[in-house]
Computed example of a mutant assay.
Amino acid sequence: MFENKVCIVTGAAQGIGKAIVERFASQGALMVYALDMNEQALSTAYEGVNNVTSVVMNICDRQAISELVEQVQADYSRVDVLVNNAGITRDALIEKMTEDEWDAVINVNLKGVFNLTQAIAPIMMENNAGSIVTMSSVVGTDGNIGQSNYAATKGGVIAMTKGWAKEFARKGAQVRANCVAPGFVATPMTENLPEKVLDLMRAKTPLGRMGTPEDITNGVEFLASDKASFITGQVLKIDGGLVL
Rank of each mutant, 00 (worst) to 15 (best):
T117V: 07
A165I: 10
E101N: 12
S148T: 14
T190L: 04
G240N: 11
S136V: 11
I88M: 02
N192P: 00
L35G: 00
S54F: 00
K196G: 04
W164V: 09
E39S: 12
N85Q: 08
I145K: 13
W102L: 13
I158D: 01
G240S: 09
A19D: 06
C7Y: 12
M189V: 03
N107Q: 14
T153R: 12
T44S: 15
S77Q: 14
G11Q: 05
G112C: 10
L110V: 10
G17H: 04
W164H: 14
Q174M: 11
R170A: 10
G172A: 04
F2M: 05
T190F: 02
Q14Y: 09
A41Q: 10
I65K: 08
T153A: 12
A181Q: 06
A74G: 13
I88C: 02
V49L: 13
A228E: 05
C179H: 12
R23V: 06
A177H: 08
T10V: 06
T117A: 14
R62A: 15
A224M: 08
I123R: 02
Q147H: 11
P206K: 06
C7I: 15
K166G: 08
V56P: 02
N115M: 05
V81N: 09
A104C: 15
A151R: 00
P213G: 01
V49K: 14
A86Q: 08
V32D: 09
N85D: 04
M37T: 13
N84S: 07
A224H: 02
V185K: 07
Q73M: 11
F222Y: 15
R209V: 09
G155H: 04
V72I: 15
A12F: 05
V197Y: 02
V52A: 06
N115K: 06
Q63R: 07
G233P: 05
V185A: 02
R78E: 11
A186S: 14
L68G: 10
V52S: 04
P206H: 06
A169Y: 03
Q118K: 15
N51M: 07
Q234R: 12
L42Q: 12
T217P: 09
D226C: 06
V139R: 02
V55Y: 01
V113T: 11
L242P: 01
K237I: 03
N192W: 00
T10S: 15
M201R: 07
V56A: 07
K166E: 12
V133Y: 09
P213S: 03
M160L: 15
I132S: 02
N107T: 00
V49W: 11
A169F: 04
A119Q: 03
Y76P: 00
N85H: 01
S137F: 03
E221F: 07
K154W: 02
